[in-house]
Computed example of a mutant assay.
Amino acid sequence: MLPTTDLTPGGLLHVAEERTAELVDEELALEAARAAFAATVDGTVFPSVSVHGSDPRNRFSLKPAASATHAGVKIGSHWPDNPRHGLPCHHSTLLLFDQTIGRIAAVLEVGTANAYRTAAADALAVDLLARPDAGTLAVFGTGHQAAYDVRAVSRVRPIRHVLVVGRDRSRAERMAATLAAGGRDATAVDADEACARADVIVTVTNATTDSPPLFPADRVRPGTHISCMGADAPGKRELDPALFPRARVFCDLPEQARGMGECRNAPEGTPLTPLGEVLTGRAEGRAGHDDITVFDSSGIGLQDLYLGLALLRRMGVTL
């Protein structure tokens, strides 16, 4: 299918991965995230669906969304054997409807843009919940997404030191070296040192309930903010459940967080505050210097819808 700008009824716009990757940046993604989370307060938010392909190791999710003017669905896939084919494990495709006739009006390949989108949700949570003087960031995870989150968080806080933690120490050292080559003070450390030094912790792994939590709850210092970006499907877990009673917990969508997010592993009755309510001033974020705050991000379709529309506007296209 060739890219086209035919937007007549029944026409179809196709925007290839290379084009959306050129268009996206941290500023556009963060502004789209702000708009999406603000829209969660008074609008309808549909829960995501996580399923698997014919091979159960191949996972994909569907994240539907509708605003007052637009609707669509993002399909995000994780095919772990893709590196054998020279392809990334993750990819995403956004479908936008023609609201008049119900057909697909636009198809956007948004693999790279999705990494910006996820990191933008992390940055928004850090901006709303972390201490203003937070200067040390610990990132647990050495995969594709981690570097995007480091860049995004560094835009909203004066991050001076980045601590990299990975199950494979050599991969953590390589990532730290890459970050250092880009001008950051980055070091590979173990989980204990990361928790002892970090003002902000970002977890962006594929950890599951079959393995121990990434770090014990009692290692987390008072005043730390934690963004949990990896637990976005049933069976995933990054945090020690014992951390929740010590923390104030925020999420994108409470019912989804309890069903497929990190909060699925939280004690029953754990209060969850939607991040959109903090953004719009309807709920309190950090209440004190020593608060431990946790943001559980399982991802909502409004993020994808608003990002896709922002990409089209940057192209000069209005659906």
Rank of each mutant, 00 (worst) to 15 (best):
P213Q: 08
R169K: 14
A134S: 08
A186H: 01
D190T: 10
F140G: 11
T136C: 09
L163F: 14
V156P: 10
D185N: 04
T208Q: 13
V165H: 00
T208E: 06
F215K: 02
A196S: 09
A207V: 14
D192L: 10
G166S: 06
A207N: 09
S211R: 15
Y148S: 05
A191N: 09
D168N: 09
R184K: 12
P132G: 06
F215Q: 04
V200D: 02
R171N: 03
I201K: 00
G166M: 02
D210A: 15
V204I: 02
L214D: 08
P132L: 15
A207P: 11
S211Y: 05
R221I: 12
R174D: 11
V156C: 05
D218W: 11
R151H: 13
H161R: 08
R157P: 02
A177Y: 04
S154F: 01
R157K: 14
I201G: 01
R197K: 09
D210H: 04
P132W: 08
P158H: 00
A217H: 13
D133V: 02
R171E: 11
F215N: 11
D218S: 13
P212L: 10
R221Y: 06
D149G: 12
A188F: 10
M175F: 14
M175P: 07
P222Q: 03
S170P: 12
V189S: 13
A217P: 03
R171C: 15
G183H: 12
G166Q: 01
R221T: 06
S154Y: 00
H161C: 08
T136H: 02
R184A: 13
V150C: 00
V156G: 03
R131P: 01
A181C: 13
Y148P: 10
A134L: 04
D149S: 11
A194V: 00
T203D: 07
A186K: 00
T205H: 07
G143D: 10
E193F: 14
G166P: 07
A181N: 02
Q145C: 03
R151W: 08
T205Q: 01
A147F: 15
R197Q: 06
